[in-house]
Each structure stands twice: as C-alpha cells, then as structure tokens.
C-alpha cells in the first residue's frame, strides 16, 4: 500500500503455475463443497433432480421408441417394388431384352419377368376364377416386370425417380409403385420426430425454469452469506461459483435419473415386445440408449443445469448488496 494503487489480488501474485494450481484446487473444492451442501438436504435434492430426470426421460424415451420404429420400417423398405405392366403387343423376347436392360440400372437389385401365360396361370391358381377364365377366348392379362430397387434406392424419393425413368421405356404401358403406405409411414414418423423435438424443447425450458427457481431460492436462503462475501471482497465470480456448481450437480443427477428411467422402461417393455415380434416371425430386437445418446442426454442435462443456475445467479446476485 506504499504505492498509489492498492494491491490487486495477493493470491495471484505468485508464479503463474502456482496461481493456476490454486485456482483449479479452489474450483475442485467448490465443486465438492456444493455437492456437500446438496447432500445435507437429500430429500429436496432428490425432488429437484427427479423433476429434471422425468422431464428429460420423456423426450429421451420417445427418441428411443422412434429410433426403434425407424429400424423396423427400414426392414420394410425392401418391400417397395415397382410393377411394369407391358403393352399387350410386346412379345416375350422383347420383354426379356427390356428386363436385362433394366437389370443393368444401378438402382435395381433384381428384375423378374412374368409372361402373359404365367400371369394367367397364377391368376387361375390364386383367384379361384379358373373355370371362368377358360371361357375367355383371349388371355386378358398383360406381361409384367417386377422390379426390386437396391436398399440405397429404396427411399420414397429415389423409388419415385426410378419409377419415372422406367415409365418412359416404350414397351411399358403402366408403371405402378406399391408403396403409398410406406410413404405415409415416413410422413407420420417425420411428424412424430418433429413432435419429439418440440416436446424436448419445451421440457428443456421446463428444466431451465426448475433449476433457475431452485437456485433462486438457494440464493435467497444464503443472502446473509452473500452479503458477508461481498463485504470482505468476494468478486461476483467467486460468489457465483458454488451456485453454478450446484446447477451442474442438479443437471448431472437429473441426467442420470432420466437415463435410469428410460433404461428401466425399456427393460419392462422388452419382454412383451419380444413376444409380439415373435408372433410376426420378426428378428426385431428392441435397442436401448447407446453410449452416444447417453452422452448427449447427460451432457444436455448438465448444460441445462448450468444455464439455469447461470440465469438465476445473473438475475438475483446483483440485487443483493451490503447496506
């Protein structure tokens, strides 16, 4: 104090390395100090984190359901097939030539040719109108090329494109794509996906408010302490720190609870799902939360906890000034 300016911060006057170590150590201490404060009121902490957990479990659970549905419908894409009904005048050899030509297209996995005679036989066998058909002088059925696209070309858009291409071959009379229902399913799933995103955004906001409000109450409860800190030279950053770490813990625990809830629900569901898919002779297996999704879930939760407390602290800490 011999010079004009007061000494800034005696603690940081040592070597930069020591200062950094002291700084990190302080952060670590505050991290565990705030954990200690939370553990002193376990019931209140559990209530808050459970609310966060349930709020985050909802969109996470829906995400898992959606992912499974996508996996399931991915298997149905193979069912997309294009039927080319050829003109009545087209002869067998011309039809085979066309079939070979189409087979060479990169989007096409395989082509099968059903001649007019085969079509009639099949129809007679399957329809039960065999005798009635005998009465006809002429075979009324066209020959058909049945085309299965490759998995890569099985998306609604790609199949649609392929359909338009095939339609332009001269021998083709009618080209028909039998996947309207697949398209509808995709649209419905897209709708659900958007719904999940909106729901997730709303619930994230709810988590922010829950954490913000909890931290606001914590700040009010510790008003006296904050005043004392400010009186003896605590910076805003110093005073803010324990509250931010409290938000961090809320986020972490909330994320873990959400993960537990989703995992538990999946375990409960896995048995009936297995029985159901067994009835459909399907190999489908319910997939849970993978590591990446879990990471995103818990990371988001922590981020929401931190942001919520940051907002509360920024809003309310300034109001508390020693008088």
């Amino acid at each position: 104090m011999a010079s004009g300016a007061p000494s800034r911060d005696i603690g940081l006057r040592r070597g930069p390395l020591t200062a950094l170590r002291v700084y990190l150590l302080r952060h670590l201490q505050v991290l565990f100090y705030s954990l200690g404060v939370l553990s002193r009121s376990p019931f209140a902490t559990l209530m808050t984190t459970a609310v966060i957990g349930i709020a985050l479990a909802l969109p996470s659970g829906l995400h898992v359901v959606l992912k499974n549905a996508q996996q399931l419908s991915g298997g149905w894409d193979g069912a997309a097939q294009i039927s080319l009904f050829l003109k009545r005048t087209v002869q067998d050899d011309e039809a085979s030539r066309l079939a070979r030509q189409i087979q060479k297209l990169p989007e096409v996995a395989n082509v099968s040719y059903i001649s007019r005679r085969e079509a009639l036989q099949e129809f007679q066998r399957l329809s039960g109108f065999g005798d009635a058909l005998e009465a006809l002088k002429d075979n009324p059925l066209p020959s058909v090329l049945v085309i299965h696209p490759t998995p890569a070309a099985s998306t609604p858009a790609a199949t649609e494109k392929l359909l338009h291409r095939l339609k332009d071959y001269p021998p083709v009379d009618i080209a028909q794509l039998d996947m309207q229902w697949v398209k509808r399913l995709y649209v419905i799933m897209e709708l659900v996906r958007r719904g999940v995103v909106v729901l997730a955004a709303l619930l994230a906001l709810a988590v922010l408010l829950v954490v913000g409000n909890t931290i606001r109450l914590a700040i009010q409860n510790r008003r006296d302490e904050i005043v004392v800190m400010k009186l003896i030279g605590g910076t805003d950053a110093f005073i803010r720190r324990p509250f931010l770490y409290t938000g961090f813990w809320y986020g972490l625990f909330g994320g873990v609870i959400a993960w537990l809830l989703v995992s538990l629900s999946l375990t409960i569901l896995s048995d009936p799902v297995e029985r159901l898919t067994g009835l459909y002779q399907s190999q489908f297996e319910l997939s849970g939360l993978d590591a990446a999704t879990t990471g995103i879930l818990i990371g988001t939760s922590i981020l929401l906890g931190l942001t919520g407390s940051w907002l509360a602290v920024g809003r309310h800490l300034r109001d508390i000034e020693p008088t």
Partner: peptide, 21 residues
C-alpha cells in the same frame, strides 16, 4: 463496480453485529 471487491480486500471491516457465518 467490478473493481470494488479488490479494493475492499485492502480494508478490514468490523461490524457491530459481527456479520459472521
């Protein structure tokens, strides 16, 4: 305002009501 905490560290203040935690 931002510098006030650093300034206060150079002053020891004693209160009638102690202001202890």
């Amino acid at each position: 305002r931002r510098r006030i905490p650093y300034f206060r560290r150079n002053i020891g203040i004693i209160f009638q009501d102690h202001q202890l935690l």
